[in-house]
Simulated assay, not measured.
Amino acid sequence: MSKLNRTYCKNPMFLVLYLSFLILILGACSQKEQVKLKVPVKNEKPKSPVTSAIGDKWKLPISIPEGEFSKLAGWLSENQVLYITNLEQTSSIYRYNLLSGKNELIYKSEYPIVNVVISPSKKSILIHASHSPSEGIVTVIDTKGAEILKKSFQSYELGFEWNPFNETQVLVTKFAEDWSFQVLLVDLRKSTTSELDVPQPFIKWLARNEIAFINWDEDHPSSYAPLNVKNIVNKSEKTLFPSLIDFSTFQDLLMTISVNEQDQSVASYSFFDKKQKRLAVFSMPQLTRYSDWLVPFYDYNEQKRQFITFKPLSSGDADSYTDGFQLIIYNLKNDSSSLVMEGLDNEPMILSPTGEALLYGNRFEKIIDLDAKKIYELINE
Rank of each mutant, 00 (worst) to 15 (best):
350 I>R: 00
327 L>N: 02
361 G>C: 07
306 Q>E: 13
313 L>G: 14
349 M>K: 03
295 V>P: 00
274 K>L: 11
292 D>V: 01
371 D>E: 12
283 S>T: 10
361 G>I: 05
289 R>P: 00
366 K>D: 05
297 F>L: 07
279 L>P: 06
292 D>M: 12
368 I>K: 07
293 W>E: 00
274 K>Y: 06
337 S>T: 10
322 T>P: 02
361 G>A: 01
319 D>S: 09
356 E>F: 06
330 Y>C: 01
344 L>V: 13
315 S>C: 07
371 D>L: 14
300 Y>E: 02
317 D>P: 03
290 Y>G: 11
331 N>C: 08
277 K>N: 15
319 D>P: 01
334 N>W: 08
326 Q>S: 08
302 E>N: 07
279 L>I: 15
304 K>V: 00
352 S>M: 01
357 A>T: 09
354 T>M: 11
335 D>E: 15
353 P>N: 00
291 S>R: 15
285 P>D: 07
347 E>V: 15
317 D>W: 11
362 N>R: 08
300 Y>T: 06
338 S>H: 13
347 E>H: 14
340 V>G: 05
368 I>E: 09
327 L>V: 08
293 W>L: 11
298 Y>D: 10
284 M>L: 10
286 Q>L: 13
288 T>C: 04
277 K>Y: 12
299 D>M: 12
317 D>I: 12
315 S>V: 07
360 Y>F: 12
280 A>D: 04
346 N>S: 14
329 I>C: 08
369 D>M: 01
329 I>G: 08
322 T>D: 14
362 N>Q: 11
285 P>Y: 10
299 D>T: 12
289 R>A: 12
293 W>F: 08
307 F>L: 06
292 D>I: 02
321 Y>G: 02
288 T>R: 03
298 Y>W: 10
336 S>R: 13
362 N>I: 11
352 S>A: 04
327 L>M: 08
311 K>W: 08
300 Y>S: 09
367 I>G: 00
358 L>K: 00
282 F>C: 10
283 S>R: 09
369 D>K: 02
287 L>K: 06
285 P>L: 14
